[in-house]
């Protein structure tokens, strides 16, 4: 039994998914998708922390997802850092991999941004 227009909403509470002031220093991991010719796509993962070995990640990921991929070095990606590039739409899978605590990297869900349609 609630009264709709008297619901209390705390205006001073921290906005829940705020990305602004509170975590300005935080680096996001961007997962993007790109269209290639036809139905083919590329998935790029940008901003995986450097404490992880990108080469090893790629090796594991390629095996799990059954796809090929490369690491694009810092110089090649024009200052965007090392980027892992995978063939096909692997956005959900790679997100699952990045957040999985047991078999993945165990990263925080909030640091990952999935772009694209």
């Amino acid at each position: 039994m609630s009264i709709e227009n008297l619901k209390t909403y705390d205006p001073f509470a921290e906005a829940d998914d705020d990305s602004g002031q509170t975590k300005q220093t935080q680096e996001y991991i961007h997962i993007r998708i790109q269209q290639r010719n036809g139905r083919k796509t590329l998935t790029t993962v940008q901003g995986i922390p450097s404490k992880f070995d990108h080469k090893k990640i790629l090796k594991v990921v390629k095996k799990i997802f059954a796809c090929n991929g490369t690491i694009i070095s810092d110089t090649e990606s024009k200052g965007m850092g090392e980027v892992i590039q995978l063939q096909g739409d692997q956005r959900l899978k790679i997100k699952e991999f990045l957040t999985n605590k047991d078999e993945g990297l165990g990263l925080d869900d909030k640091t990952i941004k999935v772009h694209g349609f």
């Binding site: 010719n37 940008q46 990606s77």
Partner: peptide, 20 residues
């Protein structure tokens, strides 16, 4: 409607692979 103000991130185009 409530007068609040917040900053938003500028639109950034991330890495995009050369295709084609």
């Amino acid at each position: 409607s409530c007068g609040s103000r917040r900053s938003v991130q500028a639109i950034k185009t991330g890495f995009s692979a050369q295709v084609g």
